[in-house]
Design a protein around this nucleic acid. Sequence first.
DNA 1: AACTCAACCGGACCGCGGTCCGTTTATTCC
DNA 2: GGAATAAACGGACCGCGGTCCGGTTGAGTT
Lengths: 202, 202
Amino acid sequence: MADSSRQLLSAPVPSERADAARNRALILDAAWRLVRTSGVDAVTMDAVAREAGVGKGTVFRRFTSRAQLMQSLLNASELDFQQQFLFGPPPLGPEADPITRLIAFGRARIDLLATQGDLLRAADGTSTSRYSAPARAASHLHITVLLRAAGVEGDLPVLSFNLLASLDSALVLHENRAQLISMERLAAGWEDLVRRVASATV
Amino acid sequence: MADSSRQLLSAPVPSERADAARNRALILDAAWRLVRTSGVDAVTMDAVAREAGVGKGTVFRRFTSRAQLMQSLLNASELDFQQQFLFGPPPLGPEADPITRLIAFGRARIDLLATQGDLLRAADGTSTSRYSAPARAASHLHITVLLRAAGVEGDLPVLSFNLLASLDSALVLHENRAQLISMERLAAGWEDLVRRVASATV
DNA sequence: AACTCAACCGGACCGCGGTCCGTTTATTCC
DNA sequence: GGAATAAACGGACCGCGGTCCGGTTGAGTT
């Protein structure tokens, strides 16, 4: 089961030359070190290159953009998160009923934002890449499946997009920090939204 | 009534020296010219400065950031939009019932995105400024008021945030262009979402 | 072991948004 | 009109993400 989620989330890097693989590891290590010691904002591509003892071009060769590097840093936790809601115990996992799972899914996301918020936001990056990350596609699919399982009818793909919009990392962090709305309140808002959507007869 | 919306949306720039006001106009003109001739992406701050025959520092003195310059460009249409849903004819204006107005509001936003999408997205900018624009606050307030008028109960501020999230410019444009979901379908999705939220008994 | 070549490497380079600061200018007060 | 001063000006400057390309190197082939 680790394999199926791995396929969804992390491109396994088919065949990489020895030095290339070594440098990928060096770069990820260096990036982690910088995150830990100086925070996400300090993780500039130049800094990573310097810290890894590698040319800047190499960093961009291994990771197309800063956002993708951040996504790679998060890969482990995203994978874990995905395992939780695909195969884990209730309320996230498959043994709970769909609506419960959907609510738990949003709550878990918001909790994750509370702890890894800046990193997640950095991984979202700007404009185009923002909405095309594999993890996002997985979330969208998950929501669609749960809605269908709950017997919700309508344009489920679009409805799922609209629900997912409420969980956007930058948005949630802004509401929490700038608007001073607690994470608990946002989580309750998610639950409320889901219940309304699911209980409605349109 | 123009005054009240003007107060909401456009800071009237209390007292500005003659040369400052002149340069503000020059800069806005130059920016419009660039948008028209070469598209939004061509509106770099250097290009605007050059086109306006003004130093780069001056551009940043009049407009704090690129995003704010874009917002100023949109000020006229945002103002118009706001007038429409505050004082205009139904279904946007106050003579229609709240839910009708709310649906029309989202549809109008999506229509606006179809025509002025890139400009609106550029005005949203990155990270912090994105969610703190005056126009956004106005939209949020409007949604809250309509929900309350419709008799919807619950945490209306948060619920409004969650609804508003579905109308995010970058998000809508991405779904339209990358996911190939037509604007009509997105508008229908908005209507569906609003009806579900409003009709639900939680 | 020598050969080949695609893959990889490094760092100079680019354009961008944004800042800084020495110089200029509109306004106000006498 | 002239002096004083706060405001505005302009362009050199910075750090960033991202690109380019000439030199290098690892991995199969004979």
